[in-house]
Simulated scan of single mutants.
Amino acid sequence: MQRKSFAGMQCPIARGLDRVGEWWSILILRDCFHGLTRFDQFQKSLPIATNMLARRLAGLVEAGLLERRQYSERPPRDEYVLTDRGRDFRPVLIAMMAWGNRHFAEEGVASHLVDIETGVPADPVMVDRASGKPVDSRHFKFAAGPAAGEGVLRRLAYAERMREKRDG
Score class of each variant (00 low, 15 high):
1 M>Q: 14
2 Q>C: 04
5 S>M: 08
7 A>F: 05
10 Q>V: 01
12 P>N: 11
13 I>S: 09
17 L>P: 01
17 L>R: 10
17 L>H: 13
18 D>W: 00
18 D>V: 00
19 R>Q: 14
22 E>T: 06
22 E>Y: 04
25 S>P: 03
26 I>F: 06
26 I>T: 10
27 L>W: 04
28 I>C: 02
29 L>R: 03
30 R>C: 05
33 F>S: 03
34 H>P: 02
34 H>Q: 15
34 H>L: 15
35 G>T: 05
39 F>A: 05
41 Q>W: 03
41 Q>V: 05
42 F>M: 02
43 Q>L: 14
43 Q>F: 01
43 Q>G: 03
44 K>F: 01
47 P>D: 15
48 I>W: 01
52 M>F: 09
53 L>A: 00
55 R>M: 05
56 R>Y: 00
58 A>C: 06
58 A>S: 12
60 L>I: 02
61 V>T: 10
61 V>Y: 02
61 V>S: 07
63 A>M: 09
65 L>Q: 01
67 E>M: 09
67 E>I: 05
70 Q>T: 13
70 Q>I: 09
70 Q>R: 15
72 S>T: 03
75 P>Y: 02
77 R>V: 04
79 E>F: 02
83 T>N: 08
84 D>L: 15
86 G>P: 05
86 G>D: 06
87 R>C: 13
88 D>I: 00
88 D>P: 00
91 P>D: 11
91 P>G: 10
92 V>R: 09
93 L>S: 09
95 A>W: 04
98 A>K: 00
98 A>Q: 08
101 N>P: 03
102 R>M: 11
103 H>T: 11
104 F>Q: 10
104 F>V: 02
105 A>Y: 06
106 E>D: 15
107 E>T: 12
108 G>C: 07
108 G>K: 09
111 S>W: 07
113 L>H: 11
115 D>G: 07
118 T>S: 15
118 T>G: 08
118 T>I: 09
120 V>N: 11
122 A>Q: 06
122 A>S: 08
124 P>M: 05
124 P>L: 11
125 V>Y: 09
125 V>D: 11
126 M>V: 12
127 V>Y: 06
129 R>I: 12
129 R>G: 04
130 A>K: 12
130 A>R: 13
130 A>N: 08
132 G>Y: 02
133 K>D: 14
139 H>R: 09
140 F>D: 06
141 K>Y: 08
142 F>N: 06
142 F>T: 08
145 G>V: 00
146 P>D: 14
148 A>C: 05
150 E>H: 09
152 V>F: 00
152 V>Q: 12
155 R>H: 11
156 L>I: 12
157 A>V: 01
157 A>F: 07
159 A>F: 05
159 A>N: 07
161 R>F: 10
162 M>Y: 03
162 M>V: 10
166 R>S: 14
166 R>I: 07
